[in-house]
Simulated scan of single mutants.
Amino acid sequence: MGNDVYKIIIEQLKEKNAKVILDAEGQALKYGIESLPYLIKPNINELKTIVDCSENLEDIKEAVREFVEKGIIVAVSMGENGALLFSKEQCLYSKPIKINVKSTVGAGDSMVAAFAIGIHENMSIEDTFRLSIASSTAKVTKEGSQAPDRKEILKYIEEVEIQRR
């Protein structure tokens, strides 16, 4: 597939009024962003492949400003350093929850799945972000690609600390 495959798919889905979440890396992410998806979810290393930034909050905020100004919500996962969410209205930071990490396989996918649920259920962006953090946290407590169940995810919802930045 070409680097523009997500760009083409996003354009087609947006014609049907779909809200698209893009979770990709490298050139596929860069080209996909051109079609203005609803939300992108790079991890910090994936973000660094398309923009010049450090892991400093202000640096990341400046690096994603262009995307946010175009209306894209940007969620940046940073592993043990937490996660950030940028929209036109706000910048949110979630501290990491202290847990015993068994596997990071699927953590980003769990986060994206929670964003999809939050969007589908018309949850606020802050509640959706909270659900995404709880979902990815619950996932990393599981071995390999084993998924957490709803009860495990809900257990972490109350522990998610979100700060406005």
Results as ranks from 00 to 15, higher is better:
residue 104 T to R: 14
residue 105 V to F: 11
residue 106 G to Y: 00
residue 107 A to L: 03
residue 108 G to T: 13
residue 108 G to V: 06
residue 109 D to L: 02
residue 110 S to M: 13
residue 110 S to Y: 08
residue 110 S to E: 04
residue 111 M to W: 04
residue 111 M to G: 01
residue 111 M to A: 11
residue 111 M to D: 07
residue 112 V to Y: 01
residue 112 V to K: 01
residue 113 A to E: 02
residue 114 A to P: 04
residue 115 F to N: 03
residue 115 F to K: 03
residue 115 F to S: 09
residue 115 F to E: 02
residue 116 A to L: 12
residue 116 A to C: 14
residue 116 A to G: 05
residue 116 A to F: 14
residue 117 I to W: 03
residue 117 I to Y: 14
residue 117 I to R: 05
residue 118 G to K: 03
residue 118 G to L: 04
residue 118 G to V: 08
residue 118 G to A: 06
residue 120 H to I: 10
residue 120 H to V: 12
residue 120 H to F: 13
residue 121 E to L: 00
residue 121 E to C: 14
residue 123 M to L: 04
residue 124 S to G: 11
residue 125 I to Y: 01
residue 126 E to F: 05
residue 126 E to P: 03
residue 127 D to L: 07
residue 128 T to A: 15
residue 128 T to M: 14
residue 128 T to Y: 13
residue 129 F to D: 04
residue 129 F to N: 00
residue 129 F to L: 05
residue 129 F to E: 00
residue 131 L to T: 09
residue 131 L to W: 05
residue 131 L to N: 09
residue 131 L to Q: 06
residue 131 L to A: 06
residue 133 I to C: 00
residue 134 A to D: 07
residue 135 S to G: 01
residue 136 S to W: 08
residue 138 A to D: 00
residue 138 A to W: 02
residue 139 K to T: 10
residue 140 V to G: 08
residue 141 T to N: 05
residue 141 T to F: 08
residue 141 T to L: 01
residue 142 K to G: 08
residue 143 E to I: 14
residue 143 E to Q: 05
residue 143 E to P: 09
residue 144 G to L: 02
residue 144 G to D: 12
residue 145 S to C: 10
